[in-house]
Design a protein around this nucleic acid. Sequence first.
DNA 1: GTCTATACAGGGATAGAC
DNA 2: GTCTATCCCTGTATAGAC
Lengths: 210, 210
Amino acid sequence: MDDHNPAEPSTRGRYAKGIRRRQQILDRAIEVFAEVGFEGTSLRAIGEAIGVSHAALRRYFDSREELFLEILREKDLQALQRARDLHQEELGLADGLDDFASHVPGVMALRHSMVARALEPGNERSRDFFIARYDSFRDEAITSLTLARNAGTVSSQLSLPVMAALVVAAVDGLSTQWLLDNSVDMHASIELLESLIAPTAEIHTEGKTK
Amino acid sequence: MDDHNPAEPSTRGRYAKGIRRRQQILDRAIEVFAEVGFEGTSLRAIGEAIGVSHAALRRYFDSREELFLEILREKDLQALQRARDLHQEELGLADGLDDFASHVPGVMALRHSMVARALEPGNERSRDFFIARYDSFRDEAITSLTLARNAGTVSSQLSLPVMAALVVAAVDGLSTQWLLDNSVDMHASIELLESLIAPTAEIHTEGKTK
DNA sequence: GTCTATACAGGGATAGAC
DNA sequence: GTCTATCCCTGTATAGAC
């Protein structure tokens, strides 16, 4: 997080403006990104959209990379919160998919850009973030699958970690195909995977390609 | 493709040097990329590695984007050729996985970077390339799955396009996780998916010419 | 605390000399 | 075919205004 902010943000008080500014930067940044993409979202472009010089942004974020990571952290937290509110921590993957994907335009694309950076030399901060993120997702999948196995809907012959990686990969890879071509029915593919993993549960006989 | 080259490259003749130079650029570029990543692989860095100014590269490629796309086109062709040589066009996905991934360090990471760009506004050339690429992969998967279905190893209840997207997504997503964390066993996850799709048999056999 | 102005090193693209 | 020079852009960094 950021040292400049107090532990409990308030809407008034000494740091109120700074906190609002920080949030404004994050919000505007993702808007700009949705319009002009990763390379186009320069610090200057973000600052311009707010009416502030690019140098001012650095008071709130150590680097452009950190700014983008902060957006992703925020979106993850929001998605997690929504999932908790809706009690969707179960295997209902297809249902939670839209949430994972985030409804805000550009967020998924931004995530892809940042993942790509994380795969390369350097970019330690991004790499650490995504390693932890995927670890967390696989763990959640294992938890869900364990429940399903205990309920008898998932074969006890199958390796849970191997299955978890597969499920996370499927969601990930399908989002890529969908972003490139909206006619790809990622919902159907995820439901298919669910039915293959938990055949005794409700069976969706046919998916269609829209 | 590139207009500057003749239809049939020869090792001698008027364009021989240009062709060799072009190949040299591609080879060096991927080496540089493996060392310093996407952002570090500037035209100047590539030129320096060859002993030529950055401006000279533009005689062979219209832009940096095109240069990188050309690398990916080349690697795809090489992988396809190897697959044909080894008669691995069948469902033997796990076996062909290493090939899909390309053994050259950095190629997978470069692909991720370029896919990420393709998902954003602008970058039409990249987007077209990857749309076609994923289309092609899904089609190949459908072909393989059709054979398996006719052989009775895959349920005729399942939608082939939906399954194809899932298989391609799994390979894609697993490569991401593996690049971030080598302890992820993507081979096992792919084999798991295969066994879920074709539970009745091992399908590592025979080649089919498309 | 917040922000502007400014400087720096480096990027891709490009024009024209040879 | 390759160069140099140049353009406008970028992220980063710092000094100082208020």
